[in-house]
Write a protein that binds this DNA or RNA. Structure first.
Lengths: 180, 180
DNA sequence: ATTAGTTGTGAGTACCCACTCACACAAGGA
DNA sequence: TCCTTGTGTGAGTGGGTACTCACAACTAAT
C-alpha cells in the first residue's frame, strides 16, 4: 500500500514541518515520533531512517528556527547601524513573530538543554543570534542585551498564550509588543 | 520493611525538593515519578497518594518557585518606589538566582503550557510576578517590561549554562548579569 | 529483462510510564 | 484489647516509547 512516492529531500521537509509544529507546543519529550509520522502520513521507521534519532530531528528543527530568526534580523539591519539597526531588527522580529511556532521552538530548545548535545547546539545557535545583534548594532552592549531580553520575554508571552488571556497584566504585556 | 516513619507534611516537602531538582533540568516529561520516588526513598505509589497526579506535583513545584521569586522581590522593594524599587528587586533577583533551580523551574513551566491546566496556573503565577513588579515600581510600564524581560533572559542564560560556555557572546552575556 | 539504487514499511524488541488497589504496619485512644 | 486513623507499599494494568531489521515496491539505467 504505497500512497504516493516522493524524494527523500521532500519527505525530510514535510517531516520538519510536522515535527516543528508538534515540538513547538509539546517539547522534545511531549510528543512521540509515531505521532509525527502519522501526521506526515508515513511510517515511524522512515523518520528514523531519514533523521537517525528523535534528538537529531529535534535539533534540526529547533536550530533551523533559531537561525531563521537570526537571518531575518541580519537582513533587516543591512546597511544600518546603532539604534536604527536595532529598531529595524525589532520590526523584523515582530514580523516573524506572527508565526508563534518560531518563538516556541527556541524556548523548547532551551528547556531541553539538560541533554549536552542539545545544549551544545543551542549555545551555538544562541551565539549566532547574539553576535548578529551585536554586529549590526555596533558596540552598545547594553542595548544588545535589552534587545535580546525583549525577545526572550516575547517567547515567554507566546508560551503563556497571553493573546488569549484576560487580565490586567496581560493587557499591559500585550501593549508593549511592537517594541520599536 | 519500613525504614523510617514520617508525617505526610514532611514527606510532601522532601518530595517537592526532589521533584524540583529533577523537573528543573528535565521538564515535566523528562523525568518519571518513579525516579523522584527513588530519590526520596519512598514508593512511587505514595507520591500519587500525596499529590494525586504527576501534573499536580509539577504545578505545585513550579508555581511555588515562581511565587518565591515574586515574594523575594516584594520584600526587597518594600518602602521604595520607581527606579529605586526596580534596582532593589534586581538585586534580590540576582541573590535568588544563585540557585539555578529557581530560574529553570519557571522556564519548564512555560515550556509545558500546552497543557491548559498548567497554562492556567502559569498565567496566574506570571501575573502575580508582573503585578508585583508593576506595583512596586509605580507606573512606568516600560521599565517594568524591561525588568521582566531581563529576568526572562536570565532564565534562558541559565538553561544554556552560559556560566560554563566559552565564547565571545557568552562573556558579553555574563558581563551584564548584576543588572542594576 | 535484469540489475542496482532509492523509497518505504510491518512487525517486532525491550523497556518505560502514569496510575490503581488491596493490603500491611504503626500508634494512640476507649 | 480492639479499633480507628494515618503512613506506606508490592504487584500489578494497560498502554506507550525509541529504535531496529528484514524485506517489499517502485524507478531508471544498462
Amino acid at each position: 500500500m504505497v500512497a504516493q512516492r516522493s524524494t527523500a529531500t521532500a519527505r525530510r521537509e514535510s517531516i520538519r514541518q510536522a515535527a516543528g509544529k508538534r515540538f513547538a507546543v509539546s517539547g522534545l519529550h511531549g510528543v512521540s515520533v509515531d505521532t509525527i509520522a502519522r501526521e506526515v502520513g508515513i511510517s515511524e521507521a522512515y523518520i528514523f531512517r531519514l533523521f537517525g534519532s528523535k534528538r537529531a530531528l529535534f535539533i534540526d528543527v529547533v536550530v533551523t528556527a533559531c537561525d531563521e530568526l537570526t537571518a531575518g534580523m541580519a537582513t533587516a539591519s543591512e546597511g544600518l547601524s546603532g539604534a536604527d539597526a536595532l529598531t529595524a531588527m525589532g520590526h523584523a522580529y515582530v514580523a516573524l513573530l506572527a508565526d508563534q511556532q518560531r518563538l516556541l521552538l527556541p524556548m523548547q530548545g532551551y528547556a531541553a538543554c539538560a541533554d549536552p548535545i542539545i545544549r551544545q547546539a543551542m549555545q551555538e545557535a544562541f551565539g549566532r543570534l547574539w553576535s548578529t545583534a551585536a554586529r549590526a548594532s555596533g558596540s552598545a552592549a547594553a542595548d544588545v542585551k535589552q534587545f535580546v531580553a525583549l525577545g526572550m520575554l516575547t517567547n515567554t508571552l507566546a508560551a503563556l498564550d497571553v493573546d488569549h488571556a484576560d487580565a490586567n497584566w496581560a493587557h499591559a504585556a500585550r501593549a508593549f509588543i511592537p517594541f520599536a
